[in-house]
Structures are given as structure tokens and as C-alpha cells.
Amino acid sequence: MPESVKFICLRCGHNFVADYTPKVVEERTCPKCGSNSVRRQKGKAAEKAAD
């Protein structure tokens, strides 16, 4: 089941939430700049982004 996960674009720095299914590798795109350098935020980084 997909879960909502925080991502950060390493091109423009945009933080966003998108569906993420563990073990499913999908092409991801930043909704702001269109870059594919999109990194899933884990642990403290995700908490920091939430703040």
C-alpha cells in the first residue's frame, strides 16, 4: 500500500509529500522544477521538514 512520504528536490530545494510504496522504484519528479533529483527524506530530515 502506498504511504505519504516527504521528499526534497535536490535541485530547487522544494519539499513536498508524495505517495511512496516500499520496494517499488518509480520515476519521481519535483512538482515545482521538474527535476528528477528527488530524495526521500528519512528519520530526522523528515521530522525537520515537517516542522
Binding site: L10, R11, E27, S35, N36, S37, R39
Partner: peptide, 9 residues
């Protein structure tokens, strides 16, 4: 900084 490595399709 991970930003120094970029990925693009």
C-alpha cells in the same frame, strides 16, 4: 552536500 550529485532522466 548530496545536491552535488544530480540525477536526471
Amino acid at each position: 552536500r548530496p545536491e552535488r550529485l544530480q540525477l536526471e532522466w
